[in-house]
Structure formats: C-alpha cells, structure tokens
C-alpha cells in the first residue's frame, strides 16, 4: 500500500530533476557540441549567482515570507564588490572624482584603501536583513511591502556607490569564478557545493528542523518553547548571506559592477524556488531542488538560442516552464487526491 501511495509524491519530488533532464536532453539533441566542458561552462556560468539568489529567496519563503528586494540587494553587493571590496573607500567613483579635482590627495592613507571597508559594508547588509526579519515579526508586517521598500533602498545605495556601471571585481573572486578544474566544469562543481551546503544547513542540522517547522506549524513551534523571533531573524540573515554570495559571484563573472545588473533576480529566484519543488507557504522547500530550478531557468536561454528562437523569448520560456511545471504539479496533486 505504501509503495503505490507514495508514487505521486515521489513523482512530485522528482519533477524538478526531470524537467532539468528533459531540457538538457533537448539541448543536446539540438546541439550535440553543447555536451562538452566548454559548452557546460558557457551555458551554466550564470547559474551560480542565480542559484545562490534562489537559495536566499528559499530561506525567506521557508518562513512564509517573500523577498522582493533580493534582485536589487544582489546588485548592491555587486557594486560593493566592484568598489569597496577591491580598493576600499579609495575605489569609490566619488572619491576618485575628488582626487581628480585635487580636493583629496592622490595617495590615500591605508585606512581608505583597505578592502576591510567592503567586508564591513557586506556584514552590515546581513545585519540589515536580520533586522528586517525582526521588524516583520514584531510588527506582523507584510513582507512583500517591507521588502518592496527595501528594494528601493538597495537600489539607491548602489547608485550612490556606483552612479554609472564600472569598477573592478577583486582579482581573487574573478579567478575563483573562472577556475578551470580538470574534467568537471566549474559551474557544475559550484552548483553541487551550493546545493550540498544549503541542504546540510537547512535540512540536516537540528536547528534547521526548527526553522522549517516554523513554516509548517508556527504555533506548534512556539508551544514547544522555541522563539519565532529568533527563527525569523535567522532565516532573513541567511537570506542576506546567500544573497551576498550571489552578488559576489555575479561581479566575479561580469568583472564590473552595475546597480541594475540583477533586477530580474527577484522574479527569477521566486520562480527557481517554485520550480525546485518548493511550496509558497507551509515550509516545504528543497535546497537541492532550488539549485536545480535555477539551473533550469538559466538553461532555458541556451535552449532557445539552439532552437534559433530570438532571445526576446527567453523570459517567456522561463515563464512557460514555470507554468508547465506548476500545471504538472496540479495534475499530480489531483491524481493523488483521487486515490
């Protein structure tokens, strides 16, 4: 009895991997040369930052909230990465202008050129995320509106740091993102590391169970003596942490920063979580699925180009994949209910 009852559930949990596999097969069928070291590198490079942003969004969705600011936050981190983190305060365009006009000396003291400033600002970003979690819990605020406001704030800060696209990513991030390990392309290794790390953190640790439980039945968690405030703070801080990694990896790939570089990540990350088998409410999420979902969304672009469909349809394909997967899921649920 157990075996047959489980099969729709099994099908459901396999759906993300199956959709990725279907997409990959379609791509290889259209363009066999894509099945190579270089091919994977090209197709999946951008999947790394998207996967990290998706994990960040997943943390927030776990506790039944939504982060509409993740895209601009990733952009903010990229701007910080291209300036403060590579050359300290001295790398800011504003400071450079002042130097050019002679207001500031060309030789800046150590304190103004150390990348520590960048580390400090990025740490502050995570603290801001943690505080948002606390604010949303204390005042019982709708996360959609609060993070909507935050998206303006991050965008504004990015523009202040980097008014026009530019800057330079720190060398170590660039070399990390362009690693050429033997046999297995770097994006695949990175995706596996992200998935395993997030899986252990959220799915395997003992506090991770409490974090997810708070999405499933907050009253039960509270009744068992856990602090829901701490849970919210922890999940938002984690979102800030993964969002930071997303921004840094993105700037490592693009080598320069831009405030508008990741605006689409907000919607992509939500789509990635859902594609990966996550539920919108109830704490049912899957870090491995989320990474697979992000990869699927990234590959959709390559698939279209191999089909010789103009890139205009890239977003449309992402939307279509999302709808098809949701429709399949609805069908499976329907089948399950009829049993």
């Amino acid at each position: 009895m157990t075996g047959s009852a489980l099969s729709p559930r099994l099908l459901r949990s396999l759906l993300p991997a199956l959709s990725l596999a279907a997409l990959l097969i379609a791509i290889f069928w259209l363009q066999p040369r894509a099945m190579s070291y270089v091919g994977f590198n090209l197709m999946l490079n951008l999947a790394i930052p998207i996967a990290l942003a998706t994990i960040a969004q997943m943390c927030v969705i776990t506790v039944n909230d939504l982060d509409l600011s993740i895209g601009t936050y990733v952009g903010f981190v990229a701007c910080v990465g291209a300036t403060l983190l590579s050359g300290g305060v001295g790398a800011l365009p504003l400071v450079k202008d002042l130097q050019a006009s002679g207001t500031l000396p060309t030789d800046l003291p150590w304190l103004l050129t150390t990348p520590l400033a960048g580390i400090l600002v990025l740490a502050l970003g995570i603290v801001v995320y943690a505080l948002l979690g606390a604010l949303i819990y204390w005042r019982d605020l709708p996360s959609i509106v609060v993070t909507l406001g935050m998206s303006f704030v991050w965008l504004g800060l990015s523009v202040v740091i980097l008014p026009v696209p530019g800057g330079a990513a720190p060398g170590w991030i660039r070399s990390l993102m362009t690693l050429k390990p033997p046999f297995i392309p770097f994006p695949i290794i990175a995706a596996a590391v992200i998935a395993i790390f997030a899986h252990i953190l959220i799915m395997r640790t003992s506090y991770g169970a409490v974090l997810r439980g708070a999405g499933g039945n907050p009253r039960a968690i509270e009744r068992a003596g856990w602090s829901l405030l701490k849970v919210k703070v922890a999940m938002f801080a984690l979102a800030g942490f993964f969002g930071m990694l997303a921004g840094l990896s993105l700037v490592g790939l693009t080598t320069s920063g831009d405030a508008n570089i990741a605006l689409r990540y907000t919607l992509l990350s939500i789509a990635g979580v859902i594609l990966g088998g996550g539920e919108f409410v109830g704490g049912r999420i899957s870090p491995v699925g989320a990474v697979i979902g992000a990869a699927t969304l990234t590959l959709a672009g390559s698939f279209l180009s191999f089909l010789r469909i103009p890139p205009d349809w890239q977003i449309g394909a992402q939307g279509a994949i999302l709808i098809i997967v949701l429709a399949l899921r609805a069908l499976i649920d329907h089948a399950e209910k009829r049993r």
């Binding site: 395997r204 003992s206 506090y207 169970a209 409490v210 997810r212 439980g213 999405g215 499933g216 039945n217 009253r219 039960a220 968690i221 009744r223 068992a224 003596g225 856990w226 539920e279 109830g282 704490g283 049912r284």
Partner: peptide, 26 residues
C-alpha cells in the same frame, strides 16, 4: 494535532525535545 506537517517523524520529535541536537541527532 501539533505536529509540523512539513517535517519528518524524527524531526518532529526533535521539535519537542530541545536536547536532541549535535551530530547524529536525526
């Protein structure tokens, strides 16, 4: 019922018993 539906049986036991932690808690 005050179980968390999204967690496993073992994880639900952990929610009730704070002392179940550390390596091998599952």
């Amino acid at each position: 019922l005050s179980l968390c539906p999204n967690l496993t049986v073992a994880e639900n036991a952990r929610i009730m018993h704070a002392s179940l932690k550390g390596i091998g808690w599952r």
